[in-house]
Nucleic acid binder design. Structure first.
Lengths: 206, 206
DNA sequence: AAATGGTTAAACCAAATGGTTAATTCCCTA
DNA sequence: TAGGGAATTAACCATTTGGTTTAACCATTT
């Protein structure tokens, strides 16, 4: 019982790395055991099957990401403040683990069943918070009344996540090395808040 | 020699479907053969190895997507026209094959080497065209002079591609069925041009 | 010191997988 | 119409993979 918790954690941490790096189908139980420095039998002793281990990892990782996103939506005074905080925190986080979003996107689109256990923990709660913020700004006359909060939220996610996800393609097409590309992506932290704000401002022509 | 071309094509078409549906690691040569209605040995007869077959499929698919994107950037009179055309054509296309972008994203992030043969066919040519369009609009005083064409282009891609890619997640969180989600995504064709335009307009406050 | 639970090593297994081979069928043309 | 090369197949092969089993080991706990 002494090392059991350590071991169980070590397995989860290692499995997380391997699954994110290689995907479900690409990952090998033997590699996970090797990298965790344990015997393969121990993997099955704790987690039974590859699928169960993966599900544990996936739920952990995805829940963590959603928590991170939704916790940033709490209690912001204005859309402007929210956008500044959100893009900074979120893009910085994504850049620290660039394979993560592609992993989630791919596994979800490959096996939508994976989402079953995630839903309910979050539902539309976080989005409701954001919706209220948007409505407040509408009343103040700061943003266009036709603005759909949900579409806006999706836009914000798209603008922060997608560029990080296609980082290899950007690097390749623009022939930039890893450092240059990261600088390019980091610039977006400064650019995006103004842009998004401008896109919903009430006073644009027409 | 009569049926060889038919067969070679049939293999490529089927392999494309299977690889996009299951990913490289998840796809099975036997399944591709079965779905193509041929013997597995024939697969190797024409394409040698799984990797070669995959590379052929991937290059084909990715080139097709880039062609589609870049062909939409040709010869547009104004940014406004471009945005309207682009979002309509591009989102409609993506919705007709929603697994495609997630497939490309994942395989590229798993094996960046795949990009080696793609680069050069396109390089920054298409982006140059777009850059010129942006500069023209700047001169006319229609958009803010600080606008970075490349960042803007990435924004446009993000706003069109990402929401389609996370369609399963949107469905799940909002508890919508496939038709509702598609309607939601299709709305963006109308919303996005104005939004993007507003985000770069010269006359926003400050 | 006996029991307990975590841990290892190693051999093992059945199924699946990418790939090969050798024979057969097909079709064009000389 | 017979020959020959290309297309196609069934059977086969070596390796990998997820998973299991068994026996022994070790550190605590009782």
């Amino acid at each position: 019982m002494v090392n059991s918790l350590q071991t169980e954690d070590k397995i989860l941490i290692t499995a997380r790395e391997v699954f994110i790096r290689e995907g479900y189908d690409g990952a090998r139980m033997q590699h996970i055991a090797d990298e965790a420095g344990i015997n393969k039998a121990l993997l099955h002793y704790y987690y039974g099957t590859k699928e169960k281990l993966f599900t544990a990892v996936f739920e952990h990782v995805f829940t963590e990401l959603l928590n991170r996103i939704f916790s940033l939506m709490e209690e912001q005074q204005s859309l402007e403040v929210f956008l500044n905080v959100f893009f900074r925190e979120h893009i910085t986080f994504l850049l620290s683990d660039p394979r993560l979003p592609a992993f989630i996107i791919n596994e979800v689109s490959l096996h939508p069943e994976l989402l079953l256990n995630i839903f309910g923990k979050f539902s539309s709660y976080g989005i409701g918070k954001f919706g209220m913020l948007v409505e407040k700004e509408k009343e103040k006359g700061l943003i266009a009344p036709g603005t759909d909060p949900l579409q806006l939220f999706i836009n914000i996610l798209s603008l922060s996540i997608f560029p990080v996800v296609i980082e290899p393609i950007i690097s390749n097409v623009l022939q930039m090395d890893a450092r240059e590309t990261e600088t390019f992506l980091r610039q977006r932290i400064e650019i995006l808040p103004e842009m998004v704000l401008a896109s919903v401002r009430k006073d644009h022509s027409k």
